[in-house]
Computed example of a mutant assay.
Amino acid sequence: MNTMTYNGSHACIGFDAEDDVFFGKIAGISDVIGFHGDSVAELKKAFHEAVDDYLKTCRKIGKEPQRPSSGKMMVRVAPEVHRFFAHDQDTC
Rank of each mutant, 00 (worst) to 15 (best):
P65F: 01
T3V: 12
A50P: 10
I26L: 15
K60Q: 10
H36S: 14
R76P: 06
R59K: 14
M4I: 07
K25M: 13
D38E: 14
H87A: 15
M4P: 00
N2L: 11
M74E: 12
P65G: 07
I26W: 05
H36I: 02
D19K: 13
R59I: 03
F47T: 03
C58L: 06
H10D: 08
C92V: 05
G8T: 03
M74C: 02
K72C: 07
G28T: 05
K60A: 13
G71L: 03
H10K: 11
M4V: 02
A46Q: 01
D90K: 06
S9M: 11
G34E: 14
K25A: 15
V75H: 07
F22E: 02
D19R: 14
G71F: 05
H36Y: 12
G34Q: 14
A86C: 05
H82P: 00
R67D: 03
D20T: 10
F47A: 06
R83H: 03
S30T: 11
G24V: 09
I61N: 02
V75I: 15
G34P: 01
K25C: 13
V21T: 13
G14Y: 06
K56Y: 08
F85I: 14
E42C: 07
F15C: 00
V21A: 06
K60T: 10
A27Y: 01
G24E: 01
V21W: 05
C58E: 02
D16C: 12
I26E: 08
A78C: 10
K56M: 05
G62K: 02
M1F: 01
F47N: 08
F47G: 04
G8R: 11
P79S: 09
F15M: 01
H82Q: 09
H36T: 09
D52S: 12
R83F: 04
D16E: 13
Y54T: 01
K25L: 08
G37D: 06
R67I: 03
D38P: 00
D53E: 08
G28D: 07
L55G: 00
H36R: 12
M4N: 01
A27R: 03
T3I: 04
K63D: 01
H82N: 01
H10N: 10
R67Q: 15
V81A: 13
H36A: 11
F85T: 05
A86P: 03
F23P: 00
D31H: 10
G37I: 05
R76K: 09
M4E: 04
V75C: 08
S69V: 04
F85Y: 15
K45W: 00
T91K: 15
F35N: 00
E42T: 06
T57V: 06
C92D: 13
V81N: 07
G62N: 02
Y54H: 10
A46W: 02
V21I: 15
R76N: 14
A86D: 13
Y6W: 10
D53C: 12
I33K: 08
G37Y: 03
